[in-house]
Simulated scan of single mutants.
Amino acid sequence: MPKASKTLQTHVSAYPGEALRVTEGANLGDGFAVSGDLCLGDAYELCDNGLPVPLQRGHVRSAKAKPGDMVLDCALTLMSDKGQHVSAQLFATLDTQGCVQKTHLRTDMLLLPKTPYVLVDIRR
């Protein structure tokens, strides 16, 4: 039992950036990218098979990041079509050249498929 508790403390769940796609807005068809490429007002929808996946909790500051590290890119606020605010954190995993390999979106609540979530705030 203690081993399971330790695992829960070192992992959180997050949606892969490609599991959410812009269905309306400037980045139509794109998944979640890093903050410099996001546009306020874009509406994202979770793919039908989009599920949160375990994500290592540790991250480093961008200035000290090495290949394979996960960095916290920004904090976001999304708003559902029903007016509910969703707080989120966007993480990026770096490849061997230091470029973004993957993004993950950690939210404070589960997202529903076929529900538009509009990006209303980006905090870097």
Rank of each mutant, 00 (worst) to 15 (best):
P116Y: 04
K82A: 15
Q97Y: 05
G25F: 07
V118E: 08
V86R: 10
T107E: 05
G68L: 00
L105Y: 07
V118Q: 08
T93Q: 12
G68P: 08
K3I: 04
D48K: 11
C47E: 07
S80Y: 06
K6G: 01
D42I: 03
K66F: 09
A88V: 02
L76Y: 08
L78Y: 06
L40C: 06
D30P: 11
G41Y: 07
G31M: 13
D108V: 04
L8Q: 14
L28P: 08
C39T: 02
V71W: 04
S13C: 05
L46H: 14
A43W: 06
T23W: 07
S87A: 12
Y15M: 05
A65D: 00
L94K: 06
A4W: 01
Y15L: 03
Q97S: 06
V86I: 15
Q97E: 10
H104C: 07
V100Y: 09
G58W: 11
G83E: 05
A19G: 00
G50T: 01
T7L: 15
A43L: 04
T96V: 07
M109L: 08
V86M: 07
L8G: 14
E45S: 14
A75R: 13
L51G: 10
L112G: 05
R57Q: 10
F32N: 06
Q89R: 12
C74E: 09
D30H: 15
V100S: 09
L55E: 14
L105I: 09
R124E: 08
P54F: 12
C47S: 14
G83Q: 05
P113Y: 02
T107C: 13
C39E: 00
T115G: 02
V118T: 13
G58L: 12
V71K: 11
D95S: 08
E24A: 15
D81Y: 08
L112M: 08
L112Q: 12
P113R: 01
S62W: 13
C39H: 04
R21H: 03
S80F: 04
P2S: 11
A63S: 14
H11P: 02
L90R: 04
P16L: 00
P52N: 10
G98S: 04
S62N: 09
R61M: 13
P16R: 04
L28Y: 13
C74F: 02
G68S: 12
V12R: 06
L105T: 08
Q9A: 15
D48H: 10
G98A: 03
H85A: 02
A75H: 11
A14H: 06
H85P: 02
S5I: 11
V86C: 02
A63N: 08
G83P: 09
L46M: 09
G29Y: 11
G29L: 09
D121V: 03
L111V: 06
G17I: 01
V86K: 10
S80N: 09
G83Y: 01
G25W: 07
H104Q: 09
D108M: 05
L110V: 00
G36K: 09
L55M: 15
D37N: 03
L112T: 14
T10V: 02
M1F: 10
V34K: 12
H59G: 09
G36S: 06
V53W: 05
K102G: 05
A4D: 14
P52D: 12
